[in-house]
Design a protein around this nucleic acid. Structure first.
Lengths: 242, 242
DNA sequence: TAGCACCTATAGCAACGCTATATGAACTGA
DNA sequence: TCAGTTCATATAGCGTTGCTATAGGTGCTA
């Protein structure tokens, strides 16, 4: 496949660069490869984009528009925190679908382009968090919340990209996502304390499990199993030492 | 400053590479620069390290030992979650002190070296989280907690590195840190906020009891009873919903 | 037709990562 | 003592990279 078609050379260069960038799994892409695929010679590239980085920046800019579109393209649910969750998932999905582009956007650190992109992504989040704050659902300043959530979001996405696609466990994402959203939202329980430090952890855990089991209707065990289980649990939770 | 001294060329190459890597703010470092600073010619580099990446890997390996040393070099406080907090801060400080090295270690995605390093860093965290789990302070499996915390830790550090040193606000780190540690720790307020995000209290309690039992030598149950008990416990703690 | 932007091609430079080959130094065994 | 072997470094140069000085072609306005 090549782009020697009738499109203008500038666009052909953009598409060729995007395609090669996406296909070469992290490896370097040369200007000669790009210009050849675009059916164009070297000076054309430098006429339109200044230098190689300029071309890549243009590719990134296009990719970022796609990203922003994805982040905006859903009906607001009316619950800002729910929308934030969707934005997180969109972010991760974008990274997994176009890992090379994502790495150029959020992974690589080039003092010029990256902060701008990060700032834009931050802005999208902050926008939504402002609604949450207006609804009194926020625990911290929207800007700080946006920075914190985005940092974790990027970290998780990078980690997921780094590991083989087969072993990817998206629970890492959902778990971290909920942790971050919960952390910035208002309706939290109070600070973690060390109240029950007197009893052994086994006993504490057994008591907690006992209470929880009594209150729930778990069907993981049969009734006879449950009966015996609770008896043992009782034996553990009434033991004096740990 | 140069390394034409009396040190063996291999070491001179390592130090020259590390120095140039640290000084060049993210820019590329050529083998010619390195060999010249080391007072050595090109083939020497390839004799000792195979290729440029091999040399950089060696630099990273040295840097990683320093990182690990930093992560281990403090007296355990007896409170695993407090130690985890220190490990987080150590991680961030390491990244800010040697940003270029950090970027090669955690930022760059090279399918070979990075996962190994990440896995090691993950191991350090998991080690400590195991103690927390044994003390019944954990809400989730130590491995999942380690992955989640490390991902957020890397994301925060990358973001801090990316922005100008003058504007760096470490509160981003402390805030995210506490959010993550709180999220994986047991003594949270219940379920709040996002409805279906947390696990049921039964599962939480079962995980804690499981970790506590593994670490203790409870003699309240016979070994055969304990075996069956743990099996049921596992069945409960791996159920998706309460 | 002339003049003027704009865009593209020819050809080539300096710097890059890397290597085929050769030379020197240090050790080994008789 | 000295040839044989191995390790370590140097000379010189290959192919590729990002990039550019210069020139030529194209389509417009007058």
């Amino acid at each position: 496949m090549s782009f020697d078609g009738q499109l203008p050379p500038k666009l052909r260069l953009l598409r060729a660069a995007a395609e090669l960038l996406a296909k070469s799994a992290g490896a370097a892409v040369s200007t000669r490869q790009i210009t050849q695929l675009a059916g164009v010679t070297a000076p054309t590239l430098y006429h339109h984009f200044g230098d190689k980085e300029g071309l890549f920046d243009a590719v990134v800019a296009a990719g970022f528009e796609e990203y922003v579109a994805g982040e905006r393209d859903f009906a607001p649910s009316g619950q800002p925190l729910v929308d934030i969750r969707r934005m997180w998932d969109n972010h991760v999905q974008f990274g997994l679908k176009q890992p090379e582009l994502y790495l150029v956007m959020f992974g690589n650190i080039r003092p010029e382009s990256r902060p701008a992109i990060v700032a834009d992504a931050e802005g999208l989040l902050e926008e939504m968090l402002n609604k949450a704050a207006a609804a009194g659902q926020l625990n911290v300043q929207p800007r700080e919340a946006a920075r914190s959530i985005l940092a974790a979001n990027v970290g998780v996405t990078l980690m997921l990209i780094a590991e083989p696609a087969a072993e990817r466990n998206l629970e890492l994402s959902t778990m971290t996502r909920d942790a971050m959203i919960f952390a910035v939202s208002r309706d939290q329980g109070r600070e973690a304390g060390s109240e029950d430090s007197g009893k052994s952890s086994v006993v504490v855990a057994a008591i907690a499990l006992n209470a929880a089991l009594q209150a729930s209707h778990s069907d993981q065990l049969t009734s006879s199993e449950l009966k015996l289980f609770l008896e043992w649990l009782h034996r553990i939770s009434t033991s004096s030492t740990g």
